[in-house]
Write a protein that binds this DNA or RNA. Sequence first.
DNA 1: TTAGGTGCAAAGAGTTTGCTCGTAT
DNA 2: ATACGAGCAAACTCTTTGCACCTAA
Lengths: 159, 159
Amino acid sequence: MESRIERLCVERGLKMTGQRRVIARVLSDADDHPDVEELYRRAVALDARISIATVYRTVRLLEERGILERRDFGGGRARYEPTEHGHHYHLIDVDSGRVIEFEDRSHEQVLAAIAQRLGFDLVSHRLELFGRRIAAAKPVGAPDAGTDAAPRRRKDRPA
Amino acid sequence: MESRIERLCVERGLKMTGQRRVIARVLSDADDHPDVEELYRRAVALDARISIATVYRTVRLLEERGILERRDFGGGRARYEPTEHGHHYHLIDVDSGRVIEFEDRSHEQVLAAIAQRLGFDLVSHRLELFGRRIAAAKPVGAPDAGTDAAPRRRKDRPA
DNA sequence: TTAGGTGCAAAGAGTTTGCTCGTAT
DNA sequence: ATACGAGCAAACTCTTTGCACCTAA
């Protein structure tokens, strides 16, 4: 059946190849923030006839078409998520790399005001929290959000 | 004369080579957020016997020693600034790459509270504004902050 | 039919590293 | 004297691209 992302692609008149359909499905099913390698791994599991170059080309295309958003949480690899399932921010678990999303409407205006004061129109902004899970307390409203793990490699240094 | 950064190096027992002295001077004199290539360019101008590998090794060392802080403003290149001339945030001019610093004490507690609510202790955070200069108004309190220009290259895409 | 997508391998950009030689302490 | 730093080039990681071939519309 047609995935959500595939539908968006069709709406925007993109040619739907087998590879794109698979990548669209993977993206639609993801509830985390996979990087290209991870997307590639999941896509290949569904259909081996996909190269990583195609994944790179596809995420770039979808980003240009406003279907995907690229994130940079440090560590050198770009990560992707579907556009706009609500404006939200990210809290990155520094121990596991897991990403928790949260909302905070109040920030927007405050930041725009700050920019204004400095003589700028706010075009966009980046707000990320890095935190460590509190041992005792069970988090509320943040059900374990998928397998976002970013297996720290040698080169990795905190952003 | 001994630069501020050099003094910090000596205090921490680092062996002071000619190259390190030059790099320390460049860093002490910088009031912007240079990337490694820019540091290299400035260092070579003072003393040609410096290789870019040494600049990389030195900034990494100084970062580990807490003397420098690495910044990632998107665009793939890490940028550096001396640690703690006060807690501050950055506003990046999307047209020129120029970086304006600003303070905002009020954020800290708000963000810590948000993390707490999600079950996390706030370890660190990242807040960056991307803006476009307002044509009419002259900015207040942000005297043209150095030559921070990041000459956008082909590969660059907004963070 | 044909504009555009794909795979592969090579190229790039930024950064790190092995090795040999040099030097601060 | 010697432990540590420097220069150079090669290696690495992530991402893009040239080219010959393939396929959706």
